[in-house]
């Protein structure tokens, strides 16, 4: 057997497009990049509940309401899969919470825009989730095993999100003039932020190259953005709505749609914390966390008390109960 260093073993796995697993040796920078990306992704799912949660009580029918509740619950679940994946890299959930709350870790800027009308539920599902799927389908091939597995799970569930959004848009587009205007207004407001979700152009993404080499990213921001535009334009045409970009045109030679320039200044302002809802989103999250503190304390106290009663000498949490339950299951 030849002796290989951690670096060599890592390089061999990456070259063979094999997955890196939690206990493998990995370069410190790989680990940091992975933590940052998965944490941001998790935070995005969690904060992403807010813009849509905003409309649950005002959904136009019981059907729409049940769907919206299920969707928001999915976002919470996606956040939890991802926190789980992130924790395999040696960080604790509480640390990640704290870094979100104090602003040292970010979430996707798309969630810093307000949801002003019901049509925004349609536009978010169709465009924001559509952009997310484009990104996430590529990420199912990412090199870190736990992240890739979370992505596969999430992609299976996101498809419902996009379809329900498009259905809302379709219903409004076929409705009264006022409803159609509402749908157009939502498209006008969400189109550019959705394109910006893919991140800065490739020539302004200094970290893309390293991420590609490590198999963290498998496609570039511009490639994914183009795919999203190509996929979405015909869908907008079917709705009879107009994409707010006068430069949008089919380019026969390239076989793709050309589109106008994204306002990156606005994008960076939102990343820096100056978007319409940045402060509200974090304030709401922190309040929910703080309001829940007594519940967490009570649950831990209850668990400790029950554990002590069941097994007076043990001070670990209920491990015995788990074993008993598993035994019952096996018998």
């Amino acid at each position: 057997m030849t002796v290989t260093t951690g670096q060599e073993a890592f390089d061999t796995l990456i070259a063979a497009k094999q997955k890196i697993e939690p206990r493998d040796w990995m370069p410190e920078e790989y680990r940091r990049t992975m933590i940052r990306q998965i944490a941001q992704h998790a935070h995005s799912e969690v904060i992403g509940q807010q813009p849509e949660g905003n409309w649950i009580t005002r959904a136009p029918s019981l059907r729409r309401k049940a769907i919206l509740v299920a969707k928001v619950q999915d976002e919470a679940g996606h956040g939890l899969y991802l926190y789980s994946a992130c924790e395999t890299l040696g960080v604790a959930r509480d640390e990640l919470n704290e870094l979100l709350h104090n602003g040292r870790q970010k979430y996707s800027s798309i969630f810093n825009y307000p949801t002003l009308s019901w049509a925004d539920m349609g536009a978010i599902g169709w465009l924001v989730d559509g952009a997310a799927i484009t990104n996430q389908v590529a990420l199912t091939r990412t090199s870190y095993g736990p992240y890739a597995r979370a992505m596969i799970r999430i992609c299976k569930e996101e498809s419902f999100h996009q379809r329900q959004g498009y259905e809302i848009m379709l219903t409004l587009a076929r409705g009264t003039e006022a409803q159609k205007d509402m749908a157009q207004d939502a498209l006008d407001r969400w189109w550019w932020p959705s394109l910006a979700m893919f991140g800065p152009p490739d020539d302004q993404s200094p970290h893309t190259e390293q991420s590609m080499r490590w198999g963290i990213k498998v496609e570039t921001n511009d490639q994914l953005r183009q795919r999203f535009v190509d996929m979405t334009v015909p869908q907008a045409q079917f709705l009879g709505l107009e994409i707010p970009d006068p430069e949008l045109a089919w380019n026969e030679e390239r076989g793709h749609y050309d589109f106008g320039d994204i306002d990156w200044e606005d994008f960076w302002e939102v990343v820096k914390g100056n978007g319409p809802c940045n402060r509200d989103r974090i304030a709401h999250k922190v309040k929910a966390w703080e309001d829940g503190a007594w519940v967490r304390e009570a649950a831990l106290a209850h668990a400790a008390k029950r554990s002590a009663a069941a097994e007076p000498t043990a001070n670990t949490v209920n491990a015995a109960n788990t074993v008993n339950a598993a035994n019952k299951e096996l018998s």
């Binding site: 976002e75 970290h207 990213k217």
Partner: peptide
């Protein structure tokens, strides 16, 4: 959703 928030100048992990 998605979310590779680009690094800001001077950002430290």
């Amino acid at each position: 959703m998605s979310y590779d928030v680009p690094r800001m100048a001077g950002e430290v992990d």
